[in-house]
């Protein structure tokens, strides 16, 4: 079996495993839309602040469900990998001819397939809440791909923890760190309108801000190539970094002869 076929096979397994846990799926679907709904309702008066880049706060927040979805789904994939190690399933895979890269990427591929379906639902949900999408039809796949790259980066980072610790709980434990990354970004306010200088500084050095701004640019501005390119660059850089670290962790765990 070729590496691609192995990735597809293991990806399918990861995908099925996730959709067969309805509680987990429901949360990853409902929470991002709920958060968009309540926060954009509560903060709608903010759109009247001079210089605010969107007509309504729901437009401004529309990018966030995609980041939430990437976070929940990618970390769940990593948690499942931790569980595979914990239960010995990874050892069973190691005894098969499955290639190491296929085991790693298969897990990520399953998560990406799942997150792309979720993005369709977030997109429809956001439009139903009154959000606008300036980049048009062509912008939709660009939005989805950028958000999915974010999911891959988060997933690869989560995998590193899973591979190092061999424990699903340890992966669960890093969830708050990603949540911090999200909240200390330009998620709730454009960086130029943040008045607290310390917060503005944190949001500026926080790469999550650039991912969000890339996604948001498609929604509120249409085709802002520079912002979009920075968003893609940050996502790809994060993937390269996270994958290289997780590959090392993988090699350390899979010491097959």
């Amino acid at each position: 079996m070729s590496a691609t076929a192995q990735i597809a096979f293991l990806g399918r397994r990861a995908f099925l495993r996730s959709i067969r846990q309805p509680g987990q799926m429901a949360f990853a679907l409902v929470f991002p839309l709920f958060f968009l709904f309540v926060v954009s309702s509560g903060l709608d008066p903010v759109s009247s602040v001079p210089g605010f880049p969107a007509d309504s706060y729901v437009d401004f927040m529309f990018a966030i469900p995609f980041v939430h979805g990437a976070l929940f789904t990618a970390l769940n994939s990593a948690i499942e990998l931790g569980r595979d190690i914990d239960t010995g399933f990874l050892n069973r895979l190691a005894l098969t001819p499955a290639r190491g890269i296929a085991i790693m990427l298969g897990n990520l591929a399953g998560g990406v397939a799942l997150v792309l379906i979720q993005y369709c639902i977030y997109f429809a949900g956001g439009l139903l809440m009154g959000a606008h999408f300036e980049a048009g039809l062509l912008g939709v796949p660009v939005l989805f791909v950028l958000a999915a790259l974010g999911a891959v980066a988060i997933g690869a980072a989560g995998m590193t923890v899973a591979l190092r610790s061999g424990s699903p709980e340890a992966v669960q434990g890093i969830f708050p760190l990603f949540f911090v990354g999200l909240f200390l970004s330009s998620m709730n306010m454009p960086r130029n309108l943040i008045e607290n200088s310390w917060f503005q500084w944190i949001a500026t050095v926080n790469p999550v801000s650039y991912l969000i701004e890339g996604l948001r640019s498609l929604i509120v501005a249409g085709w802002d190539i520079q912002t979009l390119a920075i968003g893609y660059g940050v996502a790809l850089g994060a993937i390269a970094l996270a994958l290289s670290v997780s590959a090392r962790a993988f090699r350390a765990r899979m010491t097959r002869t």
């Binding site: 903010v46 009247s48 602040v49 200390l184 998620m187 943040i194 008045e195 607290n196 944190i202 949001a203």
Partner: peptide
């Protein structure tokens, strides 16, 4: 996170 995130990012809201 909620406190720092909301109080920090939305500090300009009190000018509405």
């Amino acid at each position: 996170i909620f406190f720092v995130g909301f109080a920090g990012a939305l500090s300009g809201v009190d000018r509405i």
